[in-house]
Nucleic acid binder design. Structure first.
Lengths: 198, 198
DNA sequence: TTTTAAATGACCGACAGTCGGTCATTTAAA
DNA sequence: TTTAAATGACCGACTGTCGGTCATTTAAAA
C-alpha cells in the first residue's frame, strides 16, 4: 500500500475551496482548471474525487444543508411557536444577513445545474435532499397540531409550502427582485387561515 | 439596396424549427450547428438573428406563453367557477396531454437558462412574463371575491400561488417525480380554506 | 527493491461565437 | 434597356476555450 487519504474528507475540502469561486464567477464561468489551482491540486486529481464538474456543486450544497440543519436544531426548542419554527426553516431564504445571501446564490447554482443535468445520481441526490427537508417540516407541523396551535388541515400544506419557497427563490433571481417580504406575507396569510385563534 | 427580410418573422421561424430539437436533446446537448442545419441556414446566419444560444430559448418560450394565453381566453367565461379558472391557468403543468408535457419541458429549459444567464434582457423578459401571469390570476381571484365564491383573504394568496406552481414544476423535474396530483391537492386544500361554504 | 495508491498536466475533441468573403437583388446612371 | 455599383443576407472555415482523459511520475509502504 501507499498513502491512504481520507477520500471523503478530501472531497469536502476541494468543494469547500471552490465555494467562494463558485459564488464569485457562477458555475458557467468557473473552470475546472481554476478549481484545481485554487485547491492546490492538479486538474486530473479533481477527477479522482468527482466524476464531473456538476458533482462539485452537489457536494457544496450538501454541506450547506447540513449546516442549516444544525442551525435549525440549535435554534428551536419546546417553547418556540410553530410559525417561528417554519420561519427558521426557511431562514436562509428570508434572512437579510450577507452570509445567507451566499447560501441563496449557491442554492440557485445548484438548481440551475440540476435542471440542466439528467443523471440518476442527480435525481437521487435531489430526492434525498427533498425527503430530508420534508421530514423536518412535517415534524414541525405535526407538533403544532398536537399542541393545538394549528388546525389539522395544516398537514396538507406541507408539500406545497416547500415548493412555494423554491418558487420564490427561483423567481426572485430570475426577475432580479427581492421577494423576501412577499414570501413572509404569504406565510402570514397561510397561518392566519390555519391558526387556531384563542 | 438589396433584399429585405422580415427579421422578426425569421427569428420566430428559426426558433420554431429548433423547438423539437430542444425537447429531444435538451439545451446543453443542442449545438448551434444543428440548429442552423435544421433551420436550413448557415451557422453564421443564426448569429444575425440571435446574439447567443440562450436567446433562442427565450424566443421559444415567448411563443409558448402567447399560445397558452390564447388557450386560456378561449376556455373561460362568466360561468366557469373560480377554482376551475385557476386550474385552467395552471393547466399546462397539470394536464396529462402529451403536447402539454412538451410545454413543461420547454419551460424547464427556460428556467435552467434563466438561472445561469445574467443579462439585463433576461431579467426584463422574465419580469414581463411574470407580471402578465400575475395580472391574469389577480383578475380571476378578484372576480371570485366579487361573486362571493371565495373570502377576500384569497387575494393575498395570488403571489404565492404563482411561485408554488413554479416550485412544483421545477422540483417535479429535479426529483424525477410526477407531482401533478400533489399540486392539485394543494390547490384543493387552499380552496377549502378560502371558499365560502353555502 | 518492488509494489501500488495518488497525483499530475499535456493532450484531445467538442463547441460557441467570429469574420472575411460571396452572392442575389435592387437601384439608378448611361 | 443595359449594366455597374451598392447593399445586406448568407455562409462555413477558423479560433479560442474548456471539460474530461490517460500515460507517466512520485513517493509511501512492504
Amino acid at each position: 500500500m501507499a498513502i491512504i487519504v481520507d477520500k471523503d474528507k478530501k472531497r469536502r475540502d476541494i468543494a469547500a475551496a471552490s465555494t467562494a469561486l463558485l459564488l464569485e464567477k457562477g458555475f458557467k464561468n468557473l473552470t475546472v482548471t481554476e478549481i484545481a489551482k485554487n485547491a492546490g491540486i492538479g486538474k486530473g486529481t479533481v477527477y479522482d474525487y468527482f466524476s464531473n464538474k456538476e458533482e462539485i456543486v452537489f457536494e457544496i450544497i450538501r454541506t450547506f444543508i447540513e449546516e442549516h440543519h444544525n442551525y435549525l436544531l440549535s435554534h428551536t426548542d419546546q417553547e418556540t411557536s410553530t410559525k417561528q419554527k417554519v420561519l427558521y426553516l426557511f431562514d436562509f431564504f428570508l434572512s437579510e444577513y450577507k452570509s445567507y445571501e451566499k447560501h441563496q446564490d449557491v442554492y440557485r447554482e445548484y438548481v440551475s445545474v440540476s435542471l440542466s443535468t439528467k443523471s440518476k445520481a442527480m435525481l437521487e441526490f435531489n430526492s434525498e435532499c427533498s425527503v430530508f427537508i420534508k421530514s423536518i417540516l412535517e415534524n414541525i407541523i405535526d407538533e403544532g397540531i398536537q399542541k393545538g396551535e394549528i388546525k389539522p388541515i395544516g398537514k396538507r400544506l406541507v408539500d406545497g409550502l416547500i415548493k412555494t419557497e423554491r418558487g420564490y427563490m427561483i423567481l426572485a433571481w430570475a426577475q432580479g427582485q427581492n421577494l423576501k417580504v412577499e414570501f413572509k406575507d404569504y406565510i402570514d396569510t397561510l397561518f392566519e387561515l390555519i391558526e387556531i385563534k384563542k
